[in-house]
Simulated scan of single mutants.
Amino acid sequence: MMEHQIASPKGARRGRKRIGRGDAAGGGSYAGRGMKGQKSRSGRGLRPGFEGGQLPLIKGLPMKRGFTNRYKTHYALVSLETLQERFEPGDEITPEKLHTLGIIRRTRLPVKVLGDGELQHSLNISAHKFTAAARAKIEAAGGTAVEL
């Protein structure tokens, strides 16, 4: 037996109901479309959100229009100012250490270091991403910026 010879047992599949085939047929007459009007005619139906010519609801909600990128990378943000206050000169800073000190909430988000504030002493920072300003300030203070 071959794949194209396999058939379903009798009664396993029901044929589609052919409506609108005369008054005597089940589903004849108006064929489930009601009487007259735009939605009783053949052809393409109304587009989603059509409200019969009334100003659509979506037009009154401008903040709901547009697009959300599902693939955007969200980062746990840390400023240099925060690191300056919380760490001693020459400290090794990792995402795990930032989490244990409560500077970042979740470890599953990648860490990005921002260049806000000034850095007075050297720090050795390991993070997933650095802004150009942050990297420049860390290296100017004598520290290292290592990308994970």
Results as ranks from 00 to 15, higher is better:
G20E: 08
G20Y: 02
G22S: 02
G22H: 04
D23Q: 07
A24G: 13
A24F: 14
A25C: 11
G26W: 13
G26A: 14
G27S: 05
G28V: 13
S29A: 12
S29R: 10
Y30R: 08
A31E: 10
A31Q: 13
R33P: 00
R33V: 03
M35D: 07
M35Y: 09
M35P: 02
M35A: 06
K39I: 06
K39E: 14
S40Q: 08
R41G: 13
S42M: 02
G43A: 04
R44D: 12
R44I: 15
L46K: 12
P48N: 08
G49W: 12
G49A: 05
F50H: 15
E51F: 01
G52S: 12
G53L: 05
L55A: 12
P56L: 05
L57E: 11
K59S: 06
K59M: 10
G60A: 09
P62I: 08
P62S: 01
M63F: 14
K64T: 14
R65K: 11
R65S: 05
Y71I: 01
K72W: 00
T73F: 00
A76Y: 04
A76G: 11
L77A: 08
L77I: 13
L77D: 03
V78A: 00
V78K: 03
V78L: 13
V78D: 12
S79H: 08
T82Y: 04
T82K: 14
L83C: 10
E85Y: 11
R86H: 12
F87I: 03
E88N: 12
P89F: 10
P89S: 07
G90K: 11
G90L: 10
D91C: 15
D91T: 15
I93S: 09
T94Y: 07
E96L: 15
K97D: 13
L98E: 06
G102C: 14
G102R: 05
I103R: 01
I103L: 06
I103V: 05
R108T: 15
L109F: 10
V111C: 03
K112S: 00
V113M: 14
V113A: 04
V113P: 09
L114R: 03
G115Y: 11
G115Q: 04
D116V: 09
G117E: 09
E118Y: 12
E118C: 10
L119A: 11
Q120Y: 04
Q120N: 09
Q120D: 10
H121N: 02
S122R: 15
S122Y: 07
N124L: 00
I125E: 07
S126C: 05
A127K: 03
A127C: 06
A127D: 08
H128V: 00
H128K: 02
K129Q: 13
F130H: 00
F130V: 09
T131S: 07
A132T: 14
A133H: 11
A133V: 15
A134P: 06
R135S: 12
K137C: 02
K137V: 00
A140R: 15
